[in-house]
Design a protein around this nucleic acid. Structure first.
Lengths: 112, 112
DNA sequence: ACAAAATACATAGTATAACAATGTATGTGG
DNA sequence: CCACATACATTGTTATACTATGTATTTTGT
């Protein structure tokens, strides 16, 4: 029916959320490469991040110095670019968490 | 420190959220006018919606037939444009609620 | 009585991020 | 050997939040 409007809306709601999710996955300190992140996030959350979304996103996070990247050659196969969170990234994700929490509480107040 | 990045992020996270919040306020069936909506939402949620955000938003929701509007002259003061939700709007907000719920659960899985 | 603030609407321009489409290249399974 | 999975990346499109600005009326403070 209004499938179209909902899909557009979902795309909008994802804005900001994806960077938050990515930083949270990296938060532990473990390094992930892009393709792996997409699958990992899909597995845990069922959220599908398009490749055309993820790679520019990782570059933005890098520009902001929230993550760093490193090429790692594989014994077999295509080299991978591994991303790790920085301490600035950890601080940022903590602030994000606070805001997310407040926002969700606000929404809950209104939806109930 | 990274205040700037966080502020940009917050602005992005609000995308989609504001239409969801507005529709939820209107959900009960009670009509609200724009200026009132801004204050009501601020009072309940502490979220500040800029006027330059709200009025275009209301027009979009109207174009999508999720709400209707009606001018109401006041005995004293400036006329107000009252907005009410349509049945299509109610269906839509229900679907939005579902998605929001899933998204939040996904995020919780990753943040914890 | 007058200035400032609040009420109430609206639009134009800017910036950002998600996504589809497309492209490159290597490795693997049937 | 062909299709699919792996792994990276860019370009162009679209949608929405926000700042700035504008109009006009009413209320409040001094």
């Amino acid at each position: 029916m209004n499938e179209d409007f909902i899909n557009k809306w979902i795309s909008q709601v994802k804005k900001g959320t994806l960077s938050f999710i990515v930083l949270n996955v990296l938060k532990s300190g473990k390094a992930y490469y892009g393709y792996d992140l997409i699958n990992e996030i899909k597995k845990i959350t069922e959220i599908e991040i398009a490749e055309g979304t993820l790679y520019p996103l990782m570059n933005r996070l890098k520009d902001e110095k929230l993550i760093i990247s490193e090429w790692v050659e594989q014994e077999s196969g295509i080299p991978r670019k591994y991303y790790s969170i920085t301490s600035e990234g950890k601080n940022t994700v903590t602030k994000m968490e606070e805001y997310w929490h407040n926002l969700n509480n606000s929404v809950l107040k209104i939806t109930k």
